[in-house]
């Protein structure tokens, strides 16, 4: 099999598809891309179906050498993209020829970049998915949950596309702006006092450097949380409030069950804003109704052909 040879893997580059679903009853995390929108655009630029395997690159610093003629697309964090030293645009697709070297600099704004290839990267699925879950040791190129390493080959097939295209500028998010994350209140929100709930929406929260693919940890004036409860199934985007009063937004590598009180859920289309935030950036929350989010999600899925 031919493909793209990994010369420099970057700090955390992970093969991802739409995620590993159908196994949460056994405690298996869904994984998948943190920034669902940027990943969806990268695949769409190449006419790949929803969830085609691509690489999520944290912070950049990646160098790949192509062993074949194909097309790639990059979306997400703003970073220098060069092909044999010549600049290439972000949020765009472009051809890659055998022997050419694709180099990604370090992210200037945003944290995650998505590299898709025409037809997708090929790897053996584990529990129905190639999504890399490092904590659980599942998925990825070798099925063991390891990130990309120097010397790996990202397998793909030769392909051609008709010409360069880019994501229309109005869909390209500005990762420098302070994110306003929309929240569907619910869960155990009723067990928090009215004043505590108000405080959650009124105050700015700082993103902790301890955040990872499992959860975005927020720092601020602590909330007084109600007591723990019997562990129950949780969803991505759930805002948990542990006893220290510092909320955690569960992200793609979340656990399947949790026992901390839940204040509500972040809008799935806002996960990307959170995933693209650097540590110490402030974020704010505002309310949104479940039905409004469902309407937007349906439109989003239809547009991207889920």
């Amino acid at each position: 099999m031919t493909g793209l040879a990994v010369l420099r893997p970057g700090p955390l580059s992970l093969l991802q598809d739409a995620g590993r679903f159908g196994w949460q009853h056994l405690g298996v995390s869904p994984a998948g891309p943190l920034d669902v929108q940027a990943a969806a655009w990268a695949n769409r630029l190449l006419d790949n179906p929803w969830g085609t395997p691509l690489v999520e690159i944290a912070l950049g610093g990646v160098e790949l050498e192509s062993r074949l003629d194909t097309w790639v697309a990059l979306c997400g964090a703003e970073l220098d993209i060069t092909l044999d030293g010549a600049p290439r645009p972000n949020w765009s697709r472009f051809p890659l020829r055998a022997g050419q070297c694709l180099c990604l600099g370090f992210a200037r704004s945003g944290q995650r970049s998505y590299l898709a290839v025409a037809g997708g990267f090929r790897a053996g699925a584990l529990l129905g998915s190639v999504a890399t879950q490092t904590r659980e040791g599942l998925g990825g190129l070798h099925g063991d949950g390891q990130p990309l390493r120097a010397g790996d080959l990202l397998p793909c097939a030769p392909a051609s596309r008709s010409g360069a295209t880019s994501v229309p500028w109005r869909f390209v998010p500005d990762y420098r702006a302070e994110p306003r994350l929309r929240v569907m209140p619910g869960g155990d929100a009723g067990d928090f006092s009215v004043a505590e709930r108000r405080r959650f929406f009124a105050q700015p929260w700082r993103l902790s450097p301890q955040s990872d693919r499992m959860g975005a940890r927020l720092l601020g004036e602590p909330l007084r949380a109600p007591a723990r409860q019997w562990s129950l199934g949780v969803t991505t985007g759930a805002i948990q409030v542990p006893p220290d009063g510092q909320p955690i937004v569960l992200l793609a590598d979340r656990q399947t069950m949790g026992g901390y009180p839940i204040l509500g859920w972040v809008h799935p289309l806002d996960f990307g804003l959170l995933a693209q935030c650097p540590a110490h950036r402030t974020v704010r929350f505002e309310r949104v109704a479940v039905e409004a989010v469902q309407g937007e999600m349906r439109e989003f899925y239809r547009f991207f052909g889920r």
Binding site: F21, H25, W230, L232, G233, T235, M257
Partner: peptide, 13 residues
């Protein structure tokens, strides 16, 4: 998509 039984609950994705 997923059915997750908890101690006193059942979550349906």
């Amino acid at each position: 998509i997923d059915l997750v039984p908890g101690w006193t609950t059942l979550l349906l994705h």
